[in-house]
Design a protein around this nucleic acid. Structure first.
Length: 220
DNA sequence: GTAGGGATACACT
DNA sequence: GTGTATCCCTACT
């Protein structure tokens, strides 16, 4: 048996990247499994940034009218249709970047949008990039996540099983919070699908008035 | 509620 | 080629 990751002290130290097979599942399965896990951006000169994932949304690829993949593969969405475990980063509204992790099989175009993080390490670097200091506001909202981590289209396609951007395989810590779900935010189509998952009551969760949680089994 | 801002996709010439 | 509606948002009033 592999020794347990040494996560005492600075969280995530000694952890290893989640394996490809973690991502090679439907986005609606991967999305809740990401909650409570550490997202790590290694950078030179000690500018490492770590955040705990507290809010995500699943997108099901070419069958999901709310997904970028709905119209099939384009130059912009090529990464989504590639192998799972890679970062799909897109630019929208003329000013914001959003980070997704590619899931499922090659050619499906399914992904999970990372909507919010709880800052764990590198708060100074995050605050510098974001221009705010309040930890609860450093990475609350998908545009803020990418900005806090310093991610742009230049980072599209990064392999999350290798770094410098990766997810730790350490056991997820949810602080005793339950996983809640609701409709996805900011979309106009396929609004009936309640594929947004978040840690109930967490202060770093985004959304209009934190959005009302809707509990229940995951249905397609 | 809405300004801000640029890329993207697609309909047209 | 050019025109334009739309966009998985944020920060403000």
């Amino acid at each position: 048996m592999r020794p347990r990751s040494a996560t005492s002290g600075r969280e995530g130290r000694g952890a290893r990247p989640l394996p490809r097979r973690f991502y090679a599942r439907p986005s609606i399965v991967v999305a809740p499994a990401l909650l409570g896990r550490l997202l790590i951006r290694d950078a030179p000169r000690g500018a490492r940034v770590v955040g705990r994932i507290v809010e995500v949304e699943a997108y099901a690829g070419s069958r999901d009218a709310a997904s970028h993949a709905y119209r099939g593969e384009t130059p912009r969405t090529r990464t989504m249709f590639g192998p799972p475990g890679h970062a799909y980063i897109y630019f929208t509204y003329g000013m914001h970047h959003c980070l997704n992790v590619v899931t499922g099989r090659v050619g499906r175009g399914s992904a999970v949008l990372i909507r919010a993080l709880e800052p764990v390490e590198g708060l100074e670097a995050m605050a510098r990039r974001r221009g705010v200091r309040d930890p609860e506001r450093l990475a609350r909202g998908p545009g803020c996540v990418a900005q806090a981590l310093g991610l742009t289209r230049a980072h599209d396609g990064l392999d999350l099983t290798r770094g410098p951007l990766w997810l730790a395989d350490a056991r997820p810590r949810r602080g005793g919070r339950s996983i809640a779900r609701s409709a996805r935010i900011g979309i106009s189509r396929a609004v009936a699908r309640r594929w947004r998952f978040f840690l109930s009551g967490h202060p770093c969760v985004s959304g209009p008035a934190r959005a009302t949680a809707v509990r229940g089994p995951v249905r397609r």
